[in-house]
Design a binder for these strands. Structure first.
Lengths: 201, 201
DNA sequence: TGTACATCAGTGAACGCGCGTTCACTGATGTAC
DNA sequence: TGTACATCAGTGAACGCGCGTTCACTGATGTAC
């Protein structure tokens, strides 16, 4: 992923990412243990540290997959000839469905906290940015007056707003919320936002 | 807080909450250690477990304070005779400022994860609900057609959307964002949302 | 006023455990000559 | 074809540490008589 890899090494890496993905998907990020994944895969504990720098490195690879899958879902949601508003509404809907279907894995993307001073590698950030770009594109049609930087920023705001709503629902923090209300709530939010955004400020 | 307390016991409790608040404010939730707080206060490690059920219990008391302070800030932001839109805009602004000025403490409110099966006590949930109510109130003027339940829900959506944006900025996840852009971005978001919300769906 | 007893906050050494990471070693595979 | 050597993925016992929580004990304060 970050460098050219020999197939043998890559094989174990793959299996480890598979196993880690399964673990995180089932037990959440905090349910991922070095001993567990290696046992799942059937290799020695130490082998993990031959294949990856450390646990965080492994997690980053799982998260990268998740980001890729969402990006693919975004790409597949496009319809030719639809309006920018429609595209954004569809993206939001896609996002909500994806987050609901991949609760744990999606949470892991945001839960991973690299230790102080260590930042995500380029090959990872690239994936994140690609997602934002897919939102910024239809937004550009809505707001041709904004600069590329401002579009990126506004796309992130939109993304973050939807994300905030989904996350609050997912976490069901303190107050239970009926799951079937998420989609209409987000739809209302996005509709309001795109309508508002298309108007002048 | 949850029950009547003797003043002596209350005194140590107070000092512990003070110290914990300081620690969390400076080092974040994960920077709070039982040994540290008790050392800060100058009591024995074990005393913590006389005063509180456990660390989580202590944290809940710190978070409750934080919620109270935000609620007070909300209450203080009201102006008599302003429109519902204005009130909501002011609340959002207040929220952003509060979150920025209390980064760590505010993050702690959302970072605390009670162990499986243990839910936040009533005296805590009450505070959370009070915040939502302060948002639901002006919203009710904007949308007299919605039932109280739907208003609560919509208020939470609004709250969560703003929260999502602020959190993304605060965490500066992967991509740095100039801090001074938060306020205008949130303002644009809320303006769009209230404008959209006041219209029919 | 004095004695015996009970209560309970306060104490801190010790427990226990989870868990990431290391490291000396093995053994299969490849390379040189 | 054969021998010596190097490489490197794979191994898993052991290390180390952080840290929440417990518990037997102390001592001050309050109560009963």
């Amino acid at each position: 992923m970050e460098t050219q890899e020999k197939p043998g090494r890559d094989n174990l890496r793959h299996r480890l990412v598979d196993a880690a993905e399964r673990r995180i998907g089932e037990q959440g990020l905090s349910g991922l243990k070095a001993r567990q994944v290696t046992a799942d895969v059937g290799c020695a504990l130490g082998a993990l540290y031959n294949a990856f720098e450390d646990l965080d490195d492994l997690i980053l690879h799982v998260n990268a997959r998740t980001l890729d899958r969402l990006a693919a879902a975004f790409a597949g949601a496009h319809r030719a000839g639809e309006s920018a508003e429609e595209t954004i509404a569809v993206l939001a809907q896609t996002y909500v469905r994806f987050a609901l279907e991949n609760r744990m894995l999606w949470s892991a993307v945001f839960a991973l906290a690299l230790p102080e001073g260590r930042s995500a590698p380029d090959w990872y950030v690239v994936r994140y940015r690609a997602l934002i770009d897919q939102i910024a594109d239809p937004l550009a049609k809505l707001r041709p007056d904004l600069s590329p930087e401002e579009l990126q920023l506004r796309a992130r705001t939109l993304f973050a707003a939807v994300h905030g709503v989904v996350r609050l629902f997912l976490e069901a923090r303190f107050l239970a919320v009926p799951q079937d209300r998420i989609t209409p709530e987000v739809a209302a939010l996005v509709k309001a936002m795109t309508r508002g955004l298309s108007a002048a400020e």
